[in-house]
Design a protein around this nucleic acid. Structure first.
Length: 488
RNA sequence: GGCGCGUUCGUCUAGCGGCCUAGGACACCACCCUCUCAAGGUGGAGACACGGGUUCGAGUCCCGUACGCGCUACCA
Protein backbone atom coordinates (compact mmCIF):
# COMPACT_ATOMS: atom_id res chain seq x y z
CA UNK A 1 0.00 0.00 0.00
CA UNK A 2 2.79 2.34 -0.85
CA UNK A 3 1.35 5.69 -1.74
CA UNK A 4 2.66 7.09 -4.94
CA UNK A 5 -0.04 9.68 -5.51
CA UNK A 6 1.86 12.49 -3.89
CA UNK A 7 5.41 11.82 -2.84
CA UNK A 8 7.00 14.26 -0.46
CA UNK A 9 10.20 13.37 1.34
CA UNK A 10 12.59 15.23 3.53
CA UNK A 11 16.21 15.06 4.51
CA UNK A 12 16.56 15.96 8.18
CA UNK A 13 20.16 16.50 9.27
CA UNK A 14 21.11 17.78 12.66
CA UNK A 15 23.69 20.55 12.39
CA UNK A 16 26.27 18.98 14.62
CA UNK A 17 29.36 18.69 12.49
CA UNK A 18 30.56 18.39 8.95
CA UNK A 19 28.46 16.61 6.32
CA UNK A 20 29.02 12.92 6.76
CA UNK A 21 29.00 10.63 3.79
CA UNK A 22 26.35 8.45 5.40
CA UNK A 23 23.99 11.35 5.90
CA UNK A 24 24.51 12.43 2.36
CA UNK A 25 23.60 8.99 1.10
CA UNK A 26 20.35 9.17 3.03
CA UNK A 27 19.71 12.49 1.31
CA UNK A 28 20.52 10.97 -2.07
CA UNK A 29 18.10 8.07 -1.58
CA UNK A 30 15.32 10.44 -0.57
CA UNK A 31 16.06 12.78 -3.44
CA UNK A 32 16.17 10.01 -6.03
CA UNK A 33 12.86 8.71 -4.78
CA UNK A 34 11.27 12.14 -4.94
CA UNK A 35 12.60 12.77 -8.43
CA UNK A 36 11.48 9.43 -9.69
CA UNK A 37 7.93 10.06 -8.52
CA UNK A 38 7.87 13.73 -9.44
CA UNK A 39 7.48 14.57 -5.79
CA UNK A 40 8.99 17.11 -3.43
CA UNK A 41 12.31 16.90 -1.66
CA UNK A 42 12.73 19.12 1.36
CA UNK A 43 15.33 19.92 3.96
CA UNK A 44 14.59 20.13 7.63
CA UNK A 45 17.14 21.22 10.19
CA UNK A 46 16.87 19.22 13.40
CA UNK A 47 18.49 21.57 15.84
CA UNK A 48 16.63 20.74 19.01
CA UNK A 49 19.73 19.93 20.98
CA UNK A 50 21.09 23.28 22.06
CA UNK A 51 24.33 21.81 23.35
CA UNK A 52 25.35 20.20 20.10
CA UNK A 53 24.73 23.03 17.65
CA UNK A 54 27.74 23.74 15.47
CA UNK A 55 28.36 27.04 13.76
CA UNK A 56 28.12 26.87 9.98
CA UNK A 57 27.02 23.26 9.93
CA UNK A 58 23.81 23.96 8.04
CA UNK A 59 25.53 25.88 5.27
CA UNK A 60 28.23 23.22 5.01
CA UNK A 61 25.59 20.56 4.59
CA UNK A 62 23.69 22.53 1.97
CA UNK A 63 26.94 23.17 0.08
CA UNK A 64 27.67 19.47 0.02
CA UNK A 65 24.21 18.62 -1.23
CA UNK A 66 24.42 21.25 -3.93
CA UNK A 67 27.81 20.03 -5.06
CA UNK A 68 26.65 16.50 -5.42
CA UNK A 69 23.75 17.70 -7.50
CA UNK A 70 20.68 17.71 -5.27
CA UNK A 71 18.08 20.44 -5.34
CA UNK A 72 15.14 21.01 -3.07
CA UNK A 73 11.74 22.56 -2.82
CA UNK A 74 11.51 26.18 -1.83
CA UNK A 75 8.72 27.87 0.05
CA UNK A 76 8.34 29.93 3.17
CA UNK A 77 6.41 27.24 4.97
CA UNK A 78 8.32 24.15 4.01
CA UNK A 79 11.82 25.41 3.75
CA UNK A 80 13.97 26.31 0.79
CA UNK A 81 17.62 26.48 -0.17
CA UNK A 82 18.29 29.63 1.78
CA UNK A 83 16.06 29.08 4.77
CA UNK A 84 15.16 25.44 5.32
CA UNK A 85 12.52 24.35 7.75
CA UNK A 86 14.18 24.79 11.13
CA UNK A 87 12.84 23.01 14.17
CA UNK A 88 14.07 25.52 16.71
CA UNK A 89 11.78 28.06 15.05
CA UNK A 90 8.69 25.91 15.57
CA UNK A 91 8.56 25.59 19.33
CA UNK A 92 4.97 26.89 19.57
CA UNK A 93 3.84 24.13 17.24
CA UNK A 94 5.28 21.37 19.41
CA UNK A 95 3.88 22.94 22.55
CA UNK A 96 0.39 23.25 21.18
CA UNK A 97 0.46 19.61 20.12
CA UNK A 98 1.70 18.52 23.51
CA UNK A 99 -0.90 20.56 25.38
CA UNK A 100 -3.54 18.58 23.53
CA UNK A 101 -1.87 15.36 24.57
CA UNK A 102 -1.77 16.47 28.21
CA UNK A 103 -5.42 17.48 28.12
CA UNK A 104 -6.44 14.09 26.82
CA UNK A 105 -4.32 12.32 29.43
CA UNK A 106 -1.83 10.93 26.90
CA UNK A 107 1.08 12.93 28.25
CA UNK A 108 2.03 14.42 31.58
CA UNK A 109 4.52 16.71 33.22
CA UNK A 110 7.37 15.14 35.10
CA UNK A 111 9.49 16.89 37.71
CA UNK A 112 11.87 14.09 38.50
CA UNK A 113 15.51 15.13 38.80
CA UNK A 114 18.28 13.51 36.81
CA UNK A 115 19.60 12.19 40.10
CA UNK A 116 16.38 10.38 40.85
CA UNK A 117 16.22 9.02 37.31
CA UNK A 118 19.74 7.64 37.61
CA UNK A 119 18.90 6.22 40.98
CA UNK A 120 15.87 4.24 39.81
CA UNK A 121 17.76 3.01 36.79
CA UNK A 122 20.50 1.75 39.03
CA UNK A 123 18.05 0.03 41.32
CA UNK A 124 16.28 -1.64 38.43
CA UNK A 125 19.53 -2.93 37.03
CA UNK A 126 20.55 -4.31 40.39
CA UNK A 127 17.17 -5.94 40.81
CA UNK A 128 17.68 -7.63 37.47
CA UNK A 129 14.50 -6.26 35.94
CA UNK A 130 14.18 -6.75 32.18
CA UNK A 131 12.43 -3.58 31.31
CA UNK A 132 14.24 -0.70 32.82
CA UNK A 133 12.76 2.74 32.53
CA UNK A 134 10.80 5.52 34.11
CA UNK A 135 8.58 4.48 37.00
CA UNK A 136 5.74 6.96 36.34
CA UNK A 137 6.39 8.67 39.62
CA UNK A 138 4.85 11.90 38.34
CA UNK A 139 1.95 10.35 36.46
CA UNK A 140 -0.67 11.00 39.11
CA UNK A 141 0.82 14.18 40.51
CA UNK A 142 -1.77 16.47 42.07
CA UNK A 143 -1.97 20.02 40.78
CA UNK A 144 -1.08 21.32 44.23
CA UNK A 145 2.07 19.23 44.27
CA UNK A 146 2.91 20.34 40.74
CA UNK A 147 2.57 24.01 41.49
CA UNK A 148 4.60 23.57 44.65
CA UNK A 149 7.45 22.05 42.64
CA UNK A 150 6.97 24.68 39.97
CA UNK A 151 7.29 27.57 42.40
CA UNK A 152 10.33 25.92 43.94
CA UNK A 153 11.97 26.47 40.56
CA UNK A 154 11.61 22.99 39.07
CA UNK A 155 11.27 22.95 35.31
CA UNK A 156 9.32 19.90 34.16
CA UNK A 157 9.69 17.71 31.12
CA UNK A 158 6.64 16.34 29.35
CA UNK A 159 6.46 12.58 29.06
CA UNK A 160 4.38 10.69 26.55
CA UNK A 161 2.39 7.85 28.09
CA UNK A 162 3.15 4.60 26.29
CA UNK A 163 0.59 1.78 26.36
CA UNK A 164 1.24 -0.95 28.96
CA UNK A 165 0.54 -3.78 26.58
CA UNK A 166 -0.08 -4.64 22.97
CA UNK A 167 2.35 -4.38 20.12
CA UNK A 168 3.40 -1.62 17.76
CA UNK A 169 3.99 -2.73 14.22
CA UNK A 170 5.25 -1.31 11.01
CA UNK A 171 5.60 -2.49 7.45
CA UNK A 172 8.92 -0.99 6.57
CA UNK A 173 9.84 -0.58 2.94
CA UNK A 174 13.31 -1.94 3.56
CA UNK A 175 12.95 -4.19 6.61
CA UNK A 176 9.50 -5.53 5.98
CA UNK A 177 7.14 -6.27 8.83
CA UNK A 178 8.52 -5.50 12.27
CA UNK A 179 6.77 -5.54 15.61
CA UNK A 180 7.63 -4.59 19.14
CA UNK A 181 6.02 -5.14 22.51
CA UNK A 182 4.88 -1.84 23.98
CA UNK A 183 5.75 -2.96 27.48
CA UNK A 184 9.42 -2.74 26.51
CA UNK A 185 9.08 1.00 26.21
CA UNK A 186 8.75 3.51 29.02
CA UNK A 187 7.17 6.95 28.99
CA UNK A 188 9.70 8.86 26.97
CA UNK A 189 10.41 12.57 27.16
CA UNK A 190 8.65 14.55 24.44
CA UNK A 191 9.49 18.06 25.65
CA UNK A 192 12.72 18.69 27.49
CA UNK A 193 12.95 20.98 30.48
CA UNK A 194 14.48 23.68 28.31
CA UNK A 195 11.26 23.74 26.31
CA UNK A 196 12.75 22.08 23.22
CA UNK A 197 11.16 18.92 21.83
CA UNK A 198 13.01 15.64 21.59
CA UNK A 199 13.56 14.00 18.23
CA UNK A 200 10.59 11.68 18.68
CA UNK A 201 8.05 14.42 19.13
CA UNK A 202 9.54 16.90 16.71
CA UNK A 203 9.96 14.47 13.83
CA UNK A 204 6.43 13.11 14.13
CA UNK A 205 4.90 16.56 14.37
CA UNK A 206 6.96 17.94 11.52
CA UNK A 207 6.51 15.00 9.21
CA UNK A 208 2.78 15.38 9.65
CA UNK A 209 2.88 19.15 9.42
CA UNK A 210 5.01 19.10 6.29
CA UNK A 211 2.87 16.48 4.63
CA UNK A 212 5.69 13.97 4.35
CA UNK A 213 4.60 10.81 2.54
CA UNK A 214 7.78 8.74 2.99
CA UNK A 215 10.28 8.88 5.80
CA UNK A 216 13.78 7.70 4.89
CA UNK A 217 16.19 7.64 7.80
CA UNK A 218 19.00 5.65 9.35
CA UNK A 219 18.14 2.23 10.67
CA UNK A 220 19.23 3.25 14.16
CA UNK A 221 15.67 4.57 14.43
CA UNK A 222 14.08 1.21 13.92
CA UNK A 223 14.01 0.52 17.64
CA UNK A 224 12.20 3.80 18.22
CA UNK A 225 9.40 2.95 15.85
CA UNK A 226 6.92 2.10 18.67
CA UNK A 227 7.30 5.58 20.10
CA UNK A 228 6.44 7.08 16.77
CA UNK A 229 3.66 4.64 16.05
CA UNK A 230 2.00 5.43 19.39
CA UNK A 231 2.48 9.15 18.93
CA UNK A 232 0.74 9.05 15.56
CA UNK A 233 -2.05 6.99 17.09
CA UNK A 234 -2.50 9.33 20.06
CA UNK A 235 -2.61 12.31 17.73
CA UNK A 236 -4.99 10.59 15.34
CA UNK A 237 -2.70 11.15 12.40
CA UNK A 238 -2.03 8.84 9.45
CA UNK A 239 1.45 7.46 9.37
CA UNK A 240 3.73 8.05 6.44
CA UNK A 241 5.56 5.14 4.83
CA UNK A 242 8.92 4.33 6.36
CA UNK A 243 12.19 3.16 4.87
CA UNK A 244 14.99 2.53 7.34
CA UNK A 245 18.42 2.56 5.74
CA UNK A 246 21.54 0.55 6.62
CA UNK A 247 24.75 2.19 7.74
CA UNK A 248 27.98 2.83 5.84
CA UNK A 249 31.00 1.36 7.60
CA UNK A 250 34.73 1.86 7.34
CA UNK A 251 36.96 -1.08 6.27
CA UNK A 252 37.47 -1.94 9.94
CA UNK A 253 33.68 -2.35 10.23
CA UNK A 254 33.28 0.53 12.60
CA UNK A 255 31.27 3.59 11.76
CA UNK A 256 33.00 5.67 9.11
CA UNK A 257 34.58 8.78 10.59
CA UNK A 258 37.32 11.37 10.01
CA UNK A 259 39.68 8.93 11.60
CA UNK A 260 39.39 6.78 8.47
CA UNK A 261 40.35 9.58 6.13
CA UNK A 262 37.73 11.15 3.95
CA UNK A 263 34.41 11.05 5.71
CA UNK A 264 32.93 14.26 4.41
CA UNK A 265 31.70 14.87 0.90
CA UNK A 266 34.01 17.78 0.20
CA UNK A 267 37.03 15.59 0.87
CA UNK A 268 36.06 13.60 -2.18
CA UNK A 269 35.66 16.71 -4.28
CA UNK A 270 39.17 17.73 -3.23
CA UNK A 271 40.53 14.35 -4.26
CA UNK A 272 39.19 14.79 -7.77
CA UNK A 273 36.08 12.66 -7.54
CA UNK A 274 33.20 13.68 -9.81
CA UNK A 275 29.90 14.35 -8.06
CA UNK A 276 27.99 12.01 -10.40
CA UNK A 277 30.47 9.25 -9.61
CA UNK A 278 30.10 9.75 -5.87
CA UNK A 279 26.33 9.67 -6.18
CA UNK A 280 26.54 6.55 -8.30
CA UNK A 281 28.84 4.83 -5.85
CA UNK A 282 26.94 5.83 -2.72
CA UNK A 283 23.69 4.62 -4.25
CA UNK A 284 25.25 1.30 -5.16
CA UNK A 285 26.39 0.94 -1.59
CA UNK A 286 23.24 -0.65 -0.24
CA UNK A 287 21.15 -0.75 -3.37
CA UNK A 288 21.25 -2.73 -6.57
CA UNK A 289 19.15 -2.86 -9.70
CA UNK A 290 20.10 -6.37 -10.79
CA UNK A 291 23.09 -8.69 -10.96
CA UNK A 292 25.17 -6.64 -13.38
CA UNK A 293 24.38 -2.92 -13.62
CA UNK A 294 26.95 -0.70 -11.94
CA UNK A 295 27.40 2.39 -14.02
CA UNK A 296 24.55 4.85 -13.71
CA UNK A 297 24.26 8.44 -14.74
CA UNK A 298 22.21 10.55 -12.37
CA UNK A 299 19.23 10.36 -14.72
CA UNK A 300 19.52 6.59 -14.84
CA UNK A 301 19.57 6.46 -11.07
CA UNK A 302 16.44 8.56 -10.92
CA UNK A 303 14.55 6.33 -13.29
CA UNK A 304 15.69 3.10 -11.62
CA UNK A 305 16.02 3.72 -7.90
CA UNK A 306 13.61 1.65 -5.86
CA UNK A 307 13.88 1.60 -2.06
CA UNK A 308 12.38 -1.89 -2.00
CA UNK A 309 15.70 -3.12 -3.36
CA UNK A 310 17.76 -1.48 -0.63
CA UNK A 311 19.84 -3.94 1.38
CA UNK A 312 19.15 -4.55 5.06
CA UNK A 313 22.74 -5.06 6.08
CA UNK A 314 25.44 -2.47 6.56
CA UNK A 315 28.02 -1.90 3.83
CA UNK A 316 31.74 -1.29 3.98
CA UNK A 317 32.93 1.71 2.03
CA UNK A 318 35.40 0.60 -0.64
CA UNK A 319 37.55 3.49 -1.72
CA UNK A 320 39.14 1.54 -4.59
CA UNK A 321 35.79 0.85 -6.14
CA UNK A 322 34.75 4.47 -5.89
CA UNK A 323 37.94 5.47 -7.66
CA UNK A 324 37.35 2.87 -10.37
CA UNK A 325 33.80 4.07 -10.87
CA UNK A 326 35.07 7.63 -11.03
CA UNK A 327 37.35 6.61 -13.89
CA UNK A 328 34.36 5.13 -15.66
CA UNK A 329 32.44 8.37 -15.28
CA UNK A 330 35.38 10.39 -16.55
CA UNK A 331 35.67 8.18 -19.62
CA UNK A 332 31.94 8.22 -20.26
CA UNK A 333 31.65 11.99 -20.07
CA UNK A 334 31.99 14.26 -23.10
CA UNK A 335 35.51 15.67 -23.31
CA UNK A 336 34.11 19.14 -22.87
CA UNK A 337 32.62 18.24 -19.53
CA UNK A 338 35.83 16.67 -18.32
CA UNK A 339 37.80 19.74 -19.44
CA UNK A 340 35.43 21.94 -17.50
CA UNK A 341 35.72 19.80 -14.39
CA UNK A 342 39.50 19.68 -14.67
CA UNK A 343 39.76 23.44 -15.15
CA UNK A 344 37.66 23.99 -12.02
CA UNK A 345 39.72 21.46 -10.13
CA UNK A 346 43.00 23.08 -11.08
CA UNK A 347 41.60 26.50 -10.33
CA UNK A 348 40.63 25.51 -6.81
CA UNK A 349 44.01 23.92 -6.15
CA UNK A 350 46.60 25.04 -8.71
CA UNK A 351 49.07 22.32 -9.59
CA UNK A 352 52.81 22.82 -9.55
CA UNK A 353 53.10 24.23 -13.08
CA UNK A 354 55.35 27.02 -14.45
CA UNK A 355 52.55 28.17 -16.71
CA UNK A 356 48.99 28.29 -15.38
CA UNK A 357 46.71 26.64 -17.90
CA UNK A 358 43.82 28.54 -19.46
CA UNK A 359 40.59 26.87 -20.53
CA UNK A 360 41.80 26.29 -24.11
CA UNK A 361 45.00 24.66 -22.99
CA UNK A 362 43.10 22.40 -20.59
CA UNK A 363 40.76 21.35 -23.37
CA UNK A 364 43.76 20.50 -25.55
CA UNK A 365 45.29 18.33 -22.91
CA UNK A 366 42.18 16.35 -21.95
CA UNK A 367 42.27 13.91 -24.88
CA UNK A 368 45.81 13.04 -23.81
CA UNK A 369 44.80 11.95 -20.34
CA UNK A 370 41.16 10.92 -20.62
CA UNK A 371 41.68 7.18 -20.50
CA UNK A 372 44.45 7.48 -17.97
CA UNK A 373 42.47 9.21 -15.24
CA UNK A 374 40.92 7.63 -12.21
CA UNK A 375 40.61 10.95 -10.46
CA UNK A 376 41.11 14.50 -11.66
CA UNK A 377 44.15 14.56 -9.42
CA UNK A 378 45.91 12.11 -11.74
CA UNK A 379 46.05 14.61 -14.59
CA UNK A 380 48.72 17.04 -13.45
CA UNK A 381 51.71 14.67 -13.30
CA UNK A 382 50.89 13.36 -16.77
CA UNK A 383 50.79 16.71 -18.52
CA UNK A 384 53.17 18.73 -16.41
CA UNK A 385 55.54 18.90 -19.39
CA UNK A 386 53.01 20.90 -21.38
CA UNK A 387 53.01 23.62 -18.75
CA UNK A 388 56.72 23.69 -17.97
CA UNK A 389 59.17 26.39 -19.07
CA UNK A 390 62.26 24.32 -18.48
CA UNK A 391 62.55 20.62 -18.39
CA UNK A 392 65.16 19.16 -16.12
CA UNK A 393 66.73 16.29 -18.00
CA UNK A 394 68.56 13.42 -16.54
CA UNK A 395 70.81 12.30 -19.42
CA UNK A 396 70.88 8.84 -17.93
CA UNK A 397 67.16 8.57 -18.47
CA UNK A 398 67.27 9.84 -22.03
CA UNK A 399 69.55 6.97 -22.99
CA UNK A 400 67.31 3.98 -23.38
CA UNK A 401 68.01 0.45 -22.38
CA UNK A 402 70.52 -1.14 -24.77
CA UNK A 403 71.73 2.20 -26.13
CA UNK A 404 74.66 4.51 -25.55
CA UNK A 405 74.89 8.33 -25.53
CA UNK A 406 76.39 8.40 -28.99
CA UNK A 407 73.61 6.38 -30.57
CA UNK A 408 71.04 8.36 -28.63
CA UNK A 409 72.32 11.62 -30.01
CA UNK A 410 72.26 10.13 -33.48
CA UNK A 411 68.58 9.24 -33.29
CA UNK A 412 67.65 12.53 -31.67
CA UNK A 413 69.27 14.34 -34.59
CA UNK A 414 67.51 12.13 -37.09
CA UNK A 415 64.16 12.68 -35.39
CA UNK A 416 64.83 16.40 -35.29
CA UNK A 417 65.41 16.48 -39.01
CA UNK A 418 62.44 14.31 -39.80
CA UNK A 419 60.09 16.40 -37.70
CA UNK A 420 61.49 19.65 -39.00
CA UNK A 421 60.77 18.60 -42.57
CA UNK A 422 57.19 17.63 -41.81
CA UNK A 423 54.59 19.74 -43.60
CA UNK A 424 51.83 19.07 -41.15
CA UNK A 425 52.77 18.69 -37.49
CA UNK A 426 49.96 16.45 -36.34
CA UNK A 427 49.72 13.07 -34.72
CA UNK A 428 49.21 11.06 -37.93
CA UNK A 429 52.09 12.51 -39.94
CA UNK A 430 54.35 12.54 -36.89
CA UNK A 431 53.76 8.84 -36.43
CA UNK A 432 54.31 8.02 -40.08
CA UNK A 433 57.67 9.70 -40.16
CA UNK A 434 58.94 8.44 -36.79
CA UNK A 435 57.84 4.82 -36.78
CA UNK A 436 59.72 3.75 -39.95
CA UNK A 437 62.69 5.75 -38.82
CA UNK A 438 63.47 3.26 -36.07
CA UNK A 439 64.22 0.53 -38.57
CA UNK A 440 66.26 2.87 -40.72
CA UNK A 441 68.36 3.75 -37.70
CA UNK A 442 68.66 0.16 -36.62
CA UNK A 443 66.94 0.65 -33.26
CA UNK A 444 63.74 -0.64 -31.78
CA UNK A 445 60.59 1.45 -32.00
CA UNK A 446 60.46 1.51 -28.22
CA UNK A 447 64.00 2.80 -28.02
CA UNK A 448 63.36 5.65 -30.44
CA UNK A 449 60.06 6.67 -28.88
CA UNK A 450 61.33 6.22 -25.38
CA UNK A 451 64.25 8.51 -26.14
CA UNK A 452 61.93 11.14 -27.54
CA UNK A 453 59.54 10.74 -24.61
CA UNK A 454 62.17 11.58 -22.03
CA UNK A 455 63.75 14.26 -24.22
CA UNK A 456 60.51 16.16 -24.80
CA UNK A 457 58.55 15.54 -21.63
CA UNK A 458 61.26 14.93 -19.08
CA UNK A 459 59.06 12.11 -17.88
CA UNK A 460 59.51 8.37 -18.14
CA UNK A 461 55.76 8.06 -18.14
CA UNK A 462 53.70 10.27 -20.39
CA UNK A 463 50.69 10.21 -22.67
CA UNK A 464 51.33 8.68 -26.11
CA UNK A 465 54.32 10.44 -27.63
CA UNK A 466 52.89 11.36 -31.05
CA UNK A 467 49.92 13.13 -29.49
CA UNK A 468 52.17 14.72 -26.90
CA UNK A 469 54.45 16.16 -29.60
CA UNK A 470 51.47 17.61 -31.42
CA UNK A 471 50.28 19.37 -28.29
CA UNK A 472 53.78 20.71 -27.64
CA UNK A 473 53.95 22.05 -31.17
CA UNK A 474 56.74 21.86 -33.69
CA UNK A 475 58.92 24.68 -32.39
CA UNK A 476 58.82 23.58 -28.80
CA UNK A 477 59.37 19.94 -29.74
CA UNK A 478 62.40 20.67 -31.90
CA UNK A 479 63.84 22.95 -29.26
CA UNK A 480 63.58 20.28 -26.61
CA UNK A 481 65.04 17.58 -28.83
CA UNK A 482 67.96 19.82 -29.68
CA UNK A 483 68.62 20.63 -26.05
CA UNK A 484 68.52 17.00 -25.10
CA UNK A 485 71.02 16.09 -27.81
CA UNK A 486 73.39 18.78 -26.57
CA UNK A 487 73.31 17.46 -23.05
CA UNK A 488 74.52 14.02 -23.99
C1' G B 1 20.75 -7.86 30.98
C1' G B 2 16.16 -6.85 27.78
C1' C B 3 14.25 -5.78 22.92
C1' G B 4 15.13 -5.26 17.73
C1' C B 5 17.98 -5.89 13.24
C1' G B 6 21.69 -8.24 10.44
C1' U B 7 25.21 -12.50 8.55
C1' U B 8 26.66 -15.18 0.20
C1' C B 9 34.04 -14.52 -2.45
C1' G B 10 38.90 -9.58 1.13
C1' U B 11 34.87 -5.62 -0.40
C1' C B 12 29.97 -4.17 -2.96
C1' U B 13 26.34 -7.46 -4.47
C1' A B 14 22.73 -11.21 -7.69
C1' G B 15 19.84 -15.03 -5.62
C1' C B 16 12.84 -14.37 -3.28
C1' G B 17 12.71 -24.02 -3.06
C1' G B 18 14.75 -27.09 -8.34
C1' C B 19 17.42 -22.32 -13.84
C1' C B 20 23.33 -22.56 -8.47
C1' U B 21 28.86 -27.94 -10.10
C1' A B 22 26.24 -20.07 -6.47
C1' G B 23 26.32 -15.17 -11.26
C1' G B 24 28.44 -9.95 -11.80
C1' A B 25 31.79 -5.91 -10.14
C1' C B 26 36.22 -3.74 -7.41
C1' A B 27 40.87 -5.38 -5.69
C1' C B 28 44.53 -9.52 -6.79
C1' C B 29 47.29 -13.00 -10.36
C1' A B 30 48.40 -14.57 -15.56
C1' C B 31 48.10 -13.75 -20.68
C1' C B 32 46.73 -10.65 -25.07
C1' C B 33 47.01 -5.70 -27.15
C1' U B 34 50.94 -2.01 -26.90
C1' C B 35 55.84 3.69 -27.82
C1' U B 36 55.86 4.25 -21.51
C1' C B 37 51.63 4.47 -18.27
C1' A B 38 46.84 3.52 -18.69
C1' A B 39 42.42 1.93 -21.00
C1' G B 40 40.46 -2.47 -23.23
C1' G B 41 40.12 -7.96 -23.98
C1' U B 42 40.67 -13.19 -22.25
C1' G B 43 41.46 -16.51 -18.31
C1' G B 44 42.43 -17.74 -12.95
C1' A B 45 42.06 -17.91 -7.67
C1' G B 46 38.18 -16.64 -4.16
C1' A B 47 31.90 -17.05 -0.49
C1' C B 48 26.30 -19.38 1.10
C1' A B 49 28.66 -18.10 9.87
C1' C B 50 27.46 -22.88 12.57
C1' G B 51 23.87 -26.76 14.16
C1' G B 52 19.20 -28.84 13.85
C1' G B 53 14.66 -29.35 11.34
C1' U B 54 10.61 -28.89 7.05
C1' U B 55 10.80 -30.89 1.96
C1' C B 56 11.57 -35.61 -3.21
C1' G B 57 14.93 -31.21 -3.12
C1' A B 58 17.45 -25.34 0.92
C1' G B 59 21.95 -20.09 -0.20
C1' U B 60 16.61 -19.60 -0.52
C1' C B 61 11.42 -21.64 4.66
C1' C B 62 11.38 -22.66 10.39
C1' C B 63 14.06 -23.11 15.19
C1' G B 64 18.46 -22.67 18.00
C1' U B 65 23.69 -21.08 18.64
C1' A B 66 27.68 -17.78 17.55
C1' C B 67 29.27 -13.17 15.99
C1' G B 68 28.22 -7.99 14.70
C1' C B 69 25.25 -3.59 15.00
C1' G B 70 21.29 -0.50 17.05
C1' C B 71 17.93 1.05 20.98
C1' U B 72 17.41 0.78 26.20
C1' A B 73 19.34 9.66 27.47
C1' C B 74 15.88 15.86 29.26
C1' C B 75 21.42 13.02 21.76
C1' A B 76 19.85 12.81 17.37
Amino acid sequence: MTRTDHVRVRFAPSPTGNPHIGNVRTAIFAWLYARRHHGDFMIRVEDTDQDRRTEGAVEAMLDSLRWIGLDWAEGPDIGGPVAPYVQSERLELYHSVVEGLIDSGQAYRCYCTPDRLNQIRKEQEEAGIDTIGYDRHCLGLSSEEASRLESAGNRPVVRFKMPDDGVSELDDIVFGHVEFENRQYDDFVAIKSDGFPTYHLASVVDDHHMGISHVMRGKEWLSSVPRHVQLYAALGWDMPEFAHLPVILAPDKTKLSKRHGAASVMDYRDMGILPEALMNYLTLLGWSLDDKSEFFTTDELISNFDPHRVSRSDAVFDFDKLVWLNGQHIRNSPEGKVAEALAHYWQAAPPDFDIQPDADRVAEVVPLVLERLKTLDDAAPLVKFVFSKDIQLDPEQVVQRGMDPEGTRRILEAAHKGLADLECFETGPIESVLRPMAAELGVKVGQLLGTLRVATTGQKVSPPIFESLEVLGRDRSLELIEKAAEQL
